[in-house]
Design a protein around this nucleic acid. Structure first.
Lengths: 156, 156
DNA sequence: CTTTCTGCAAACGATTTGCAGCAGC
DNA sequence: GCTGCTGCAAATCGTTTGCAGAAAG
């Protein structure tokens, strides 16, 4: 038997992703159109949060308003998440249900954002600290964010 | 001798704050005008990050554009810091040189932000994790942010 | 056929800026 | 008097929305 040229894990993961997204959208009477598929694929391939200009550069034929409208639809469906870095551009990434819990490394100069993954030990400390702080001030914890701000290799 | 009615620490801290800000501005050929003084006092009194509408509500006679222009001047001087919560409103607080290192409790519904202070132990863990992540990806650490997102007492 | 999606162009809201006069050093 | 500050009104920029036709179930 011949080994496949393309890593099967990559394609399987992408197929599974699309399937899950289609299902989630369908549950909300939303269609998984080619454009939405392209947006999800773009975000999955990037592996880091993308700005709207970056998304549009990857999909040059797509009008801005359609990109915004469909990213918003994906956000409403819980597939995509919008985050804010240091600059005024919103950044978009797959929701944690479709990726994994992680944090961000943000460049103070150019605004670029990379993903980072914390150790289970740190995650436990963050969760515990979140609960303690929230309890003190009467909040109910939903999630936490840990961002490291610094200079990226290009801006150093 | 009669004890003062107003806690002296409060007034002393405010006086020291104004003095420091005046100096920092002066070093940049900037004047510490009554409006700038009012903005700094507003932020110091709030003890949590304020939106522009909140700042304007506290200083009703001040035109929006002047408030924005002067908050920007204070940011350029390193006196004020702009942060982003969950909504689209920017939020402003005194820079850490004029307050203390702290983190934020953000309401997912109304966007309100409260300050929280982490234990020295957690801070050490955050600093260490920051360095480790930054090293791996070639960044140079400048600061870190830890936000707890949840529901505030009013929105629960 | 009904509902959702698309592209376009116009609207929106937070923030910024050009300008002319006023105020501090 | 030079330089920086003010208020106003207009501009900017990311993002959202109304509309009429195309497409999917």
């Amino acid at each position: 038997m011949t080994a496949p040229r393309v890593p099967s894990t990559t394609m399987d993961a992408l197929a599974g992703l699309h399937e899950g997204v289609a299902q989630r959208l369908g549950a909300d009477d939303q269609r998984y159109t080619p454009l939405r598929r392209a947006l999800v694929a773009t975000l999955a391939a990037a592996g880091r949060p993308l700005t709207m200009p970056e998304i549009l550069a990857t999909n040059p034929a797509v009008p801005q308003s359609s990109a915004y409208r469909n990213v918003t639809a994906l956000i409403d469906a819980g597939v995509v998440r919008r985050i804010t870095g240091t600059d005024d551009h919103g950044r978009f990434e797959l929701a944690e249900s479709y990726s994994a819990h992680h944090h961000h490394l943000v460049c103070a100069t150019c605004g670029k954002v990379d993903d980072i993954h914390a150790s289970p030990r740190l995650e436990r400390a963050l969760a515990e600290a979140s609960r303690a702080a929230a309890d003190t001030q009467g909040y109910e914890v939903m999630e936490h964010r840990f961002d490291v701000v610094g200079l990226c290799p290009d801006c150093r």
